[in-house]
């Protein structure tokens, strides 16, 4: 029998894998965006598990809005990425340091 805490532990594990991915792939902006997507998938699993076990549809509606915001975030993030590549010739995070004091 699968209970709520199984889903919570699963999403905690995947959340931390995504967190470690941000540390590991710190220099590649595309990998950072994909790790954020992984983290969002884990968090959405939490919401849906609570929605299922608590019999409340509000969690699923919240996931719906998270998906919308994440899609907008990816679109703008990739646009910024393309601009960075066009101006700098690289998507390395360390290259984009012109605001550094």
């Amino acid at each position: 029998m699968i209970v709520l805490s199984d889903y919570l532990i699963l999403s905690a594990i995947v959340f931390c894998i995504g967190l470690a991915g941000i540390f590991i792939n710190r220099t590649n902006i595309i990998m950072l965006l994909m790790c954020v997507e992984l983290i969002l998938a884990a968090v959405n699993t939490n919401f849906i598990a609570f929605s299922y076990f608590g019999s409340d549809i509000a969690g699923q509606i919240f996931v719906f809005f998270i998906l919308t915001v994440a899609a907008a975030e990816v679109a703008i993030g990739l646009a910024i990425l393309t601009l960075v590549y066009r101006n700098r010739g690289s998507i390395d995070v360390d290259v984009t340091n012109s605001l550094k004091g």
């Binding site: 805490s5 919570l8 532990i9 905690a12 594990i13 959340f15 931390c16 894998i17 967190l19 470690a20 991915g21 941000i22 540390f23 590991i24 710190r26």
Partner: peptide, 20 residues
């Protein structure tokens, strides 16, 4: 940054699993 990432994620996973 691989060791730092592994340390942070293992700490967070163990905290969450212990609490849950």
């Amino acid at each position: 940054y691989l060791p730092l990432g592994i340390v942070v994620s293992v700490v967070v996973i163990s905290q969450m699993v212990l609490v849950l």
